[in-house]
Amino acid sequence: MSRESLDRLFADVRREGRTAFLPFMTAGLPSPGETVETFVAMAEAGADAFEVGIPYSDPLMDGPTIQVASQRAIEQGMTLGGGFEVLRRVVEATGRPSLAMSYANPVFRVGPHEFARRAADAGAAGLIVADLPLEEAGPVIEATEGAGIGLVLFAAPTTHDERLARIAARDPVFIYGVAAMGVTGERDEVSDVPRRLAERIRAVTGTPLVMGVGIGTPEQAAALAPHVDGIIVGSALVRRALASDDPIPEIASATRALANALS
C-alpha cells in the first residue's frame, strides 16, 4: 500500500457522497493473539481504513482508555517491530489502507527515514504522530514522501485560520481535525465545536478532512458526517477491547453501528 490508497479512498467517498470510517485500535489488543482478527472483524463490519496504534510509554495526547491499552500492550510484549507486523498482517488480510500511529520520540529515536521505510515496508499508507506539529514536521514529511507514504497533520479548535493554511500547504494525506478540546476519550455531549472547525478548514483547503477525538457514538458520528470526509473512533472501541470477556463481537457490532451512521 502507499499514500495513493488513501488518496483513492477519499476520492471514492467524495464521489459516493459518504463519509469514511477509520477505527483506531492499539496493536496488541484485545490480546496479542486477537489483534489481527479484531481488525478483520472491523473491516467486515464496514471500516474503510485503519489506524494501528503502536503503543508508547508516555502517550500525552491520550486519555485514560488508550493509556491503559498502551501500557497493557507494552507489558504483554508489543514492540515497534511487533506493531509494524500487526499492520502488515492487517493490510494483507483486509486490503484496507492503514496508518501507523505513534509519538515523536519513537519516530526520531529510530530516525524518521528508517521509521517511514519500515512503515512502508509493512504496507502502511500513512503515518500519524500525535505530538508533531507543523514546526517540527519537516524531517518526517521528507521521510514519508521518500517512502511513498502519507503524513497526517493536525488542526485543532485553537488553530487559527492563517495556521490552517500553512498546515494545508504541507500537503498532508489528510488533515486530522481534533473534534474536542482535550486528549482522546469518549465525551457525552454533541457540541458544535467540530462542525465549526470543519467549516473553517473547508474554507481554507480541499485537503481531505478526517475528524477524531471525543467521537464515540453513532449519534455523534452522524451529526458530524456531512461536514467531513472521514471519522476516527478510538477510545470507544479500545474500551471494549479492554473490558469485555468476548471483545471481538462487541467491537464488530460497535463498528457496524458507527459505519452505518456514516452511510
Binding site: 506539529p133 507543523l134 495556521r163
Partner: peptide, 12 residues
C-alpha cells in the same frame, strides 16, 4: 529544545 506538542497547544 523545540516544540513537540499537540497541535491544540501550539497557538497557546
Amino acid at each position: 529544545g523545540g516544540m513537540f506538542a499537540p497541535e491544540t497547544l501550539m497557538p497557546a
